[in-house]
């Protein structure tokens, strides 16, 4: 039945995913059998007993205890079986071993932020070591979100004002898709992320330096990637139109007027300050809503963003 599972389900990246798929395929085969029975009988009767003569009397068949017991008790037994099977898998998946690696997850319109035990933070990309039990401790800063990793068959609503857990052990290295599955407004469908399952060595290296590709890229390309990946694009446009924050187009070298009436020329230091301490200077006409990216961006990424803004004339 492997082809069936592979056709219908995403890649299996954990043992739990395999368990879910086994039950899924079981229910699929079972319900298909029932469905074929229903369709077969419906079509058979409709064809075989099609009206050929008007005004005939039919048989009086209103009860058959044996038949009724069979079709009540067999489905009942089957669904009780499915219940226990599914509950077992569900309960097992919810237990976190003591040595689980704890990572904090924060949902905020429309980004995921991750914080690792050593204080490293990342946006939109979650890095974990392979075959290591992970416990995500999740909360939201605004509305409901849901953290959904199809490859692991897990999902959990993320609730403001409360911490909820999500446990998994990823067994397949690589990049897996993360979705927000609870509707959260305008960019709900853009609230994506990537789960990177790495070898322990690669994971440790990532904690240290960040992704190695960063160092090979042209600074402005890196800046563009940061703009997309870290969610700058949800507020700052690159075509001059007004967003939640000022557009990046033509920003570099422009004289900005601030809420308190002062002005400054947008140079490297201004942009750096705006990224790390956004409330220091708020451009007139905008709300002070930008979060700080202190600890979220590496030095090389900040340089990239500056280079990218310089390019957007």
């Amino acid at each position: 039945m492997n082809w069936l599972r592979e056709w219908m389900m995403p890649l299996q990246a954990s043992e739990h995913a395999a368990k879910v798929d086994n039950l899924y395929v079981f229910i699929l085969l079972l319900t298909s059998a029932f469905f074929v029975l229903i369709v077969y009988l419906t079509v058979l009767f409709a064809w075989k007993y099609k009206r050929r003569k008007e005004g005939v009397l039919t048989i009086n068949f209103q009860h058959n205890l044996a038949l009724e017991l069979v079709w009540s008790i067999i489905p009942l037994m089957i669904v009780i079986g499915i219940f226990f099977w599914s509950f077992n898998d569900y309960a097992a998946a919810n237990v976190a071993p003591n040595d689980a690696l704890e990572i904090h997850v924060t949902g905020k319109k429309w980004n995921w932020t991750f914080e690792y035990p050593d204080g490293t933070r990342s946006i939109r990309s979650l890095h974990v070591p392979v075959n290591k039990p992970i416990r995500l401790i999740m909360t939201s800063e605004d509305v409901l979100h849901a953290f959904f990793i199809p490859a692991l068959r897990i999902k959990q609503d993320v609730i403001p004002g409360r911490y909820v857990d999500l446990n998994f052990t990823a067994t397949v290295a690589g990049k897996h898709q993360v979705f927000c599955a609870e509707y959260c407004g305008r960019d709900h469908s853009g609230m994506l992320g990537d789960l990177f399952v790495d070898s322990p060595a690669k994971y440790a290296e990532w904690l240290e330096k960040g992704d190695e590709e960063l160092y090979k890229m042209k600074p402005a390309d890196l800046g563009k990637m940061v703009w997309e990946m870290k969610g700058c694009n949800s507020c700052h446009t690159i075509d001059g139109s007004k967003g939640e924050g000022p557009s990046f187009k033509g920003l570099f070298g422009r004289t900005e007027k601030f809420k308190d009436g002062s002005t400054a020329v947008a140079d490297e230091n201004y942009i750096r300050e705006s990224i790390l301490n956004p409330q220091a200077k708020v451009v007139a006409g905008y709300e002070p809503v930008m979060p700080t990216f202190q600890g979220l961006l590496r030095e090389i990424e900040i340089k990239g963003v500056i280079a990218y803004i310089k390019e957007l004339k």
Partner: peptide, 28 residues
Amino acid sequence: LMFLILFGIGGLTGLFLGAMSVDIHLHD
């Protein structure tokens, strides 16, 4: 007759969603 077939699909797919471990994946 259409109802019998479509309700068959609608009802039987409910089994996937009633099963907790599978529902976690399929929910929303």
